[in-house]
């Protein structure tokens, strides 16, 4: 098997002597994966994700990004591999037009103006914001502003995308647009890591799920395995998607399903075969 793009080896992290945020984390993420990081606030999700691009360095243990130790490698080399989309767009947006915002990253990579222009156009196209180049970022609605933050990471062309709670504050359409975008990036070969509290989003988007609580990984596995582990989820106070709960509580379905469409298809099949 190929070397993982991100390798977390026995990582501990302390914000202060009293606050141990990560305990004994071991995790391998391979190129091309799409995974969700779930768990309550304070459980360590964001702290762990910030280790993926060197924003935080382990107190103990090590993190390798494309084989590079984040403690010994200049941050700009790590950041070029792993892009981080922050939860609050206001923490990321600082230029006065959409174009300049998306151009900022590639300009810092000292690319030619033609290459910068090409990347900006491409990134805006992928997130569906073509035509807004000259607008002020704050004239975009909240959902579009979120897409802009994805575009400004996309223009850096990283291999790995980390999205920190992209669904918070989004309405249902916004959540679906972001889910589609994650799937699209993944199909284009990007590795995608999404932190979220929305289990319907997880079921629709992710193939692998890592559940964290109290600084540890409680469960790591394929999405249908983790979302059907009712007991472990309950320990972390998480309810699975409603159709999963329906499947578990009715207890008569021949197989697992994760989405409304999958459930409908299975039930239709059962009714037809009678």
């Amino acid at each position: 098997m190929a070397e993982p793009i991100i390798k977390v080896e026995d990582v501990w992290f302390q914000y202060s002597p009293e606050v141990v945020a990560l305990k004994e984390i071991n995790l391998e993420i391979h190129s091309g994966e799409i995974l969700a990081l779930i768990g309550q606030n304070g459980g360590g999700k964001t702290t762990l994700a910030k280790h993926f691009n060197g924003l935080l360095k382990p107190t103990k243990g090590r993190v390798l990004v494309a084989g590079m130790d984040t403690k010994e490698t200049p941050t700009h080399k790590i950041v070029a591999k792993v892009g981080y989309v922050f939860q609050n767009p206001a923490h990321q947006i600082f230029m006065s037009t959409v174009y300049e915002e998306v151009a900022y990253g590639p300009r810092n990579l000292e690319l030619s103006e033609e290459e910068v222009d090409r990347r900006v156009k491409e990134a805006l196209k992928v997130v569906g914001l073509e035509g807004t180049e000259e607008m002020h970022p704050y004239d975009l609605d909240y959902g579009k502003r979120k897409l802009l933050t994805v575009a400004s990471v996309l223009s850096m062309n990283p291999e790995v995308f980390v999205l920190d709670e992209p669904t918070t504050g989004q309405d249902h359409v916004g959540r679906r647009v972001l889910s589609d975008l994650c799937i699209k990036l993944n199909k284009e070969g990007k590795t995608v890591v999404v932190i979220t509290h929305d289990m319907r989003f997880v079921a629709r988007t992710a193939k692998r799920v890592v559940l964290m609580a109290e600084g540890r990984i409680l469960k790591d596995g394929p999405v249908e395995e983790v979302l059907y582990d009712y007991e472990t989820l309950r320990k972390a106070f998480i309810r699975p998607p409603q159709v999963v709960e329906l499947n578990l509580k009715v207890g008569k379905f021949p197989e697992k399903f994760l989405t409304v469409d999958e459930a409908a298809e299975m039930i239709r099949g059962i009714l037809k075969s009678r």
């Binding site: 998607p241 159709v243 409304v260 469409d261």
Partner: peptide, 16 residues
Amino acid sequence: VDPPSVTELTHLLRNE
């Protein structure tokens, strides 16, 4: 707006 999943599911299966 997404209705509750179980409502949407039942709507998809309303004929059956």
